[in-house]
Design a protein around this nucleic acid. Structure first.
Lengths: 364, 364
DNA sequence: ATTAATTGGTTAAACGATTAAGCAAATAGT
DNA sequence: ACTATTTGCTTAATCGTTTAACCAATTAAT
């Protein structure tokens, strides 16, 4: 009986010792404190350059920290300080040049201020987006910068972020109803700019392969399209206004659909470069002369627009500026003690980049 | 005097109270414990489905947790458990389809197991890569999955990861000298496959716009190129073998350089699709018939290879499989108590995707 | 009936940093 | 010469969760 207990005790001691031996404990401020025979508080303050610590001690601490190869435990300080220095980013996908360069810029700006980003993608699915939000909240991010999935209509999950007092900044695809900050371009104006450009090129029947109206930016592009037609006394033909998800495949399908009309359009303006690319593929396959028989304009200025033949006219959304502004907006909130968000739009001017697919004057 | 002290005390009390009022404390397991009049330990165990807690209590805990809108504090549990459930990913850039889809897959696999990823990009800079590593270590990631920057020769920083006992998994661009896991394709074989394909198309003078030899994959592609030439009794002409950073711009420059040779090549094999694209632009600009006068092959199977005219023959690296294997490899380590890494290569078979830029038989 | 094992918890100590509060010694102010 | 302030620390609590160790009550085994 007693022997058993002793045996058990010895076993436990032993396994503990083994554990200690095996696991190379990372150095902590406690180790530094022990070496210098000062308190952990002093070490912590020294490392954070507190004014109440003498320069001599600071130097010593820094030296020992270096010698022991000390790496601060971010989790501990984050827990204590109540902030993780992590910012969540949600985008529909990263393998689009627009989103990836927005992220790149956000990362660049935030890294400088000691923040890291956790990137997640919704793959245009509302369900994945909700999961992403949960994951980010769970990871205790200090803020979220997001561009919504096409599918997203219900904003309950985004309200969840707001209700937790975590700053939320939307860009590109954002619903203003959430009353948070938004950074984007003037889609309505840009859309008008495109139509006007096509009109100038002599186009009379301009089709629009648009996104779904429930997404504000696509709705704005549609409104811009309609109003620009009105302005130039061109009739609005409902056959020429199509909504879709704007993938390459959608572009192919909708272009085919447009070509099957009794009276075909003489120009197609797609609300995304991907849809424009699909349209271009169909036009090329059917040997339709671009831009002479059909002018084509995309949206987003993805790099491939200048790679394909003919190159596609598109709209430059200044992705880097969007990323920068979003990051700066977040940083503003980090300076405020209590987060109180309100609708705050930063609208950048987009720029039309005319290429071969709509440059009739030049080509002829 | 005494009055002053009292005033100071009252002021401090007041400001503390104000703080308490202002900051909406998030619910913790303590709150749940209080409601149910049990210990926080019981709550923690209930939430983690510990067998020593009755089903009744578990149900109650879950219910209260839901009612109070409880969100576990990841930082606290990470600190206590000594793991962050965060995995760092380092890539040269995210706006390449290859890397972005590798990341996508890693994310997918790891999310299922409760891990999140922190994505960083080196932008092909060694300095940024070192920063990224520091950042990731600082963030206490449980592992790092990386593809090295072109510039990276010194491996000291990567040794740092290893020395901390954090699993490191390399993919695509990896130095085997580090003695860690590596997932990639067989570059040597793929390179031979490309040359053989070109030989079959009747090409006799095949140029190679390669990457720098110090990067193993590019060295392997160069070796494959050389050996395949030998195998088919084609002379190796040093003018036709060029090293570069493989950007679009490099492709343009090196193609121009090749066109200025006394005896031009009749085929160009670029070790990246981006370089191939640059080459294609020059060829198109100079109205050189592809593939008739000059066959062209890229590497990586980036989406744009099928978008441009003519479409570019390339090698599919099975990015998703690479991502999957990398993630699985990491997960293996999470099951082991002590990380002991060794060189462990997973080599996937790449696939040649023949397109118009090299399909002479079909075009003629 | 007695001992042993199981059930369902509790207590308290971690994890590693930060920070409010306190305090002795040195310095400054009058 | 005495008080006030500043300097340079220390002590101890805290962030929210997990977990080793313990314990009382119940059930099972002999």
């Amino acid at each position: 009986m007693i022997i058993k207990f002793i045996a058990l005790y010895l076993f436990k001691r032993l396994s503990k010792d083994i554990k200690k031996l095996n696991i190379k404990r990372k150095t902590t401020i406690k180790d530094i404190a022990n070496v210098l025979n000062i308190s952990t508080a002093a070490v912590s303050k020294a490392l954070n350059d507190d004014s109440r610590i003498s320069e001599k001690t600071k130097q010593a601490v820094r030296q020992v920290a270096k010698n022991l190869n000390y790496q601060p435990n971010h989790l501990a300080s984050a827990l204590r300080k109540g902030k993780s220095n992590l910012v969540g980013v949600i985008v529909p996908r990263t393998n689009s040049h627009f989103f990836s360069s927005v992220i790149q810029k956000i990362e660049e700006v935030l890294n400088k201020e000691g923040y890291n980003i956790i990137m997640t993608q919704s793959s245009e699915s509302y369900k994945k987006e909700c999961n992403n939000i949960d994951t980010l909240l769970f990871t205790q991010v200090d803020g979220i910068i997001a561009s919504m999935a096409n599918e997203t209509i219900d904003l309950a999950y985004y309200e969840k972020i707001k209700s937790k007092g975590i700053p939320l900044i939307l860009f590109d695809r954002g619903e203003n109803d959430l009353n948070v900050d938004y950074i984007g371009i003037n889609d309505y104006d840009s859309s008008q700019m495109i139509v006007e450009h096509l009109v100038k090129q002599g186009c009379k029947r301009i089709a629009h392969i648009g996104g779904y109206r429930h997404t504000r930016i696509f709705n704005n592009r549609i409104r811009g399209y309609i109003d620009a037609l009105k302005k130039h006394n061109l009739p609005l033909d409902n056959e020429l206004l199509i909504e879709s998800s704007l993938t390459i495949e959608d572009g192919r399908k909708k272009m085919t659909q447009l070509l099957n009309l009794k009276t075909k359009p003489d120009a197609v303006y797609a609300a995304s470069d991907y849809a424009a690319l699909g349209a271009l593929q169909i036009l090329n396959e059917q040997n339709i002369n671009i831009p002479h028989d059909m002018a084509l304009v995309g949206f987003g200025n993805e790099p491939f627009t200048s790679m394909v033949t003919p190159s596609i006219t598109s709209v430059n959304q200044h992705s880097e500026e969007i990323g920068k502004q979003a990051a700066l907006k977040f940083l503003e909130y980090t300076k405020e003690p209590v987060i109180k968000q309100s609708l705050n739009k930063i609208i950048l001017n987009a720029e039309l980049v005319v290429r071969d697919s709509s440059n009739i004057a030049k080509v002829e």
